[in-house]
């Protein structure tokens, strides 16, 4: 693989997927124009060292991508601690870490409210962990900033890793077709099995589905059918990255709606025979408690994931310059 191509693929790995092809195409053209210009002036092809010098002057792939993602903001604590090129990655790490903390705290607060966990001072806990995350992330990125500045003139583009080439529209279509078939098989199995409880083992033969089971069954069915939209969209327009968040909104929303209905509709399993012994009743109670906890956690995680997807999708839509296509211009 050509050194310039390898450099561009490395830059690409740090760029947002919706703009990566377009930005890399332009950057690649500028680099090739510069190489050709230098060759014309020298009257000979550039040596490898000269090509390395051209790429080194462009900067490390992480920083180049950072400049494209930057809105000029930086972290200044007396003096500049994190520059504009690293700041987008610093902000992303804070959001990601904060989101995980928020998820755990939201789940913990909800579990406390319904009596599953003992009460904990959630606000103080949140402030403590968010401050700790900010301190650790700042220290790591400030150290990285210093190291990147010190090695700006000495880093070697020849030592860049060789990333995988981005998927072509053809390979994306093949992947989408495989996904469609796989999801279709899952749906077929889900629809064809008359008694899914029987699949879990003979011990559950004494149980029958309860009223909550129907909603869970429909929720899985609806969200799986809606998840067909993503590969279907890829099959038609492989390069289109816009509006994927709508799929997440509908698919996640459908699952959450049915799961909440399921959670509020009593038991998932009941003894098949009302005169069953205490063992069967205990088994049903244990399974229902497991369903309640597991489904509650799944609702929180799915809801959180959908909210993040939708927020990122809307944010990108609002920031998209007018007329900028969502697909690679070629």
């Amino acid at each position: 693989m050509d050194l310039v191509e390898r450099y561009l693929l490395n830059v690409r790995t740090y760029l947002p997927s919706g703009r990566a092809d377009d930005l890399v195409a332009e950057l690649g053209e500028n680099i090739r124009a510069e190489v050709e210009d230098r060759e014309e002036r020298a009257g000979r092809p550039l040596t490898e060292d000269e090509r390395v010098a051209v790429l080194r002057a462009h900067g490390r792939p992480l920083l180049v991508a950072g400049h494209y993602r930057s809105d000029g903001r930086r972290l200044v604590l007396g003096r500049e601690v994190i520059g504009p090129a690293l700041f987008p990655f610093f902000r992303f790490s804070l959001i990601a870490a904060g989101a995980v903390t928020g998820l755990v705290i939201a789940y913990g607060a909800a579990a406390s409210m319904i009596g599953l966990w003992r009460p904990v001072p959630w606000f103080r806990t949140a402030v403590f962990y968010l401050s700790l995350q900010f301190g650790i992330a700042t220290a790591i990125f400030a150290g990285l900033e210093i190291w990147l500045r010190r090695t700006a003139q000495t880093w070697d583009p020849r030592r860049l890793p060789v990333p995988r080439k981005p998927a072509t529209p053809g390979s994306l279509r093949v992947q989408a077709a495989i996904q469609l078939v796989a999801i279709g098989i899952v749906l077929w199995i889900w629809a064809a099995v008359p008694d899914p409880l029987a699949l879990l083992g003979p011990r559950l033969a004494d149980l029958r589905p309860g009223p909550a089971w129907r909603f869970l069954y429909l929720g899985v069915w609806a969200s799986t059918v809606l998840s067909l939209l993503t590969p279907a969209l890829t099959l038609v327009r492989p390069g289109l990255h816009r509006f994927r968040w709508l799929v997440s909104l509908f698919s996640g929303g459908a699952f959450i709606a049915f799961a909440l209905a399921s959670l509020w509709n009593g038991a998932w399993v009941l003894p098949a025979d009302p005169r069953s012994g205490i063992e069967v009743v205990d088994l049903a109670v244990g399974i229902n408690a497991g369903f309640k906890l597991g489904l509650g956690l799944t609702v929180v995680v799915t809801g959180f994931g959908s909210v993040v997807d939708v927020a990122i999708g809307l944010w990108r839509e609002l920031r998209r310059p007018q007329g900028e296509p969502g697909i690679n211009p070629g």
Partner: peptide
């Protein structure tokens, strides 16, 4: 003007 300053700047001015 450095490459890593100018090329992203063009995108920003366009946006």
């Amino acid at each position: 003007v450095d490459e890593d300053t100018l090329y992203p700047l063009l995108r920003r001015l366009e946006s």
